[in-house]
Design a protein around this nucleic acid. Structure first.
Lengths: 152, 152
DNA sequence: AGAGTATCCTATCAATCCGATAGGAACCAA
DNA sequence: TTGGTTCCTATCGGATTGATAGGATACTCT
């Protein structure tokens, strides 16, 4: 269960765009230096985000990138799906495409439940939540529970 | 967020062992054919499980593998960690080792919340739950919620 | 028109991981 | 001693990952 560098970079770049003034485009290099992301690598990521309409771009002098939708309506799941495809997949397949035999049969439901729980986090947090540091209370509760777990 | 083939195979083999009579060892090849797993590949996986004490092995004629602990006490998270390491990591690092700048700062909490929610699923389901098809009600609720989502 | 700027496209690259395979050594039971 | 089975090490092709490079395309401003 790993979050790829692409996904991590994409969310951070999107957060940077959400925090910027929407009237002026931000250059890819400005995003790269602000978040410590390799410039050329980020270009490919922004291309993915543009394909899904999450950002818009403008070429030429004074050009750059802007958020394509209101920050309140873009979730982290949207960003990750744009660069990495489906949120959760098992052995390269979607859970619904799997078949299990014998005592492993109920495992399919476990993967489905896992995906559901992943979605409750990633589809609930928006870019606006990030830039205003206003995460939903459900998320904050999960973080607190985890801290308690780590110190036990 | 992908579940590797190693993890999937490991859980299925462990489930097969949990379903078997604990008195007689099961050969790796029997596990492989029962679950459709490449035999040689499975051997390496079983070696990982043995290192963590999840299975015990016996060489020679009449040998094979047995569960190293009661099926009620082995969670899916235990199995996955044995073959893949930490459950959730971002860009190859644990969330606690990450540092985010500017508007991306709250992202760290999102990853922590995500990990917490992953744990609630994978640390709750045991091998015994799988073989008896007796998943916890919390898991069943998540599956139902996901079905509703898929049909919407 | 032209100069400058920035995205955009394609190609490449090394490293790593992944899934899978092979040979043979170690070990065990009968 | 014989046959069965785990166990160790090494290798392999292919895909993915993270990153880099060159140059084509498009836009703005002078």
């Amino acid at each position: 269960m790993r979050i790829s560098a692409r996904a991590d970079y994409a969310v951070r770049a999107a957060a940077e765009l959400a925090a910027a003034d929407h009237d002026v485009p931000v250059r890819a290099e400005a995003l790269a230096t602000a978040q410590g992301i390799p410039y050329r690598f980020l270009e490919g990521i922004l291309s993915d985000l543009r394909r899904d309409g999450l950002v818009t771009s403008q070429r030429g002098a004074g050009g750059g990138y802007r958020l394509g939708q209101p920050a309140e309506r873009v979730t982290i799941a949207d960003v990750i799906r744009a660069v990495d495809g489906p949120l959760v997949f098992v052995r390269g397949k979607r859970p619904s495409d799997l078949e299990y035999q014998g005592p492993a049969a109920p495992l399919l439901q476990v993967w489905v439940a896992l995906r559901a729980n992943v979605r409750t986090v990633l589809e609930q947090v928006t870019l606006a939540d990030l830039v205003t540091d206003g995460l939903p209370t459900e998320i904050r509760d999960l973080v607190r529970a985890d801290d308690a777990w780590a110190n036990a």
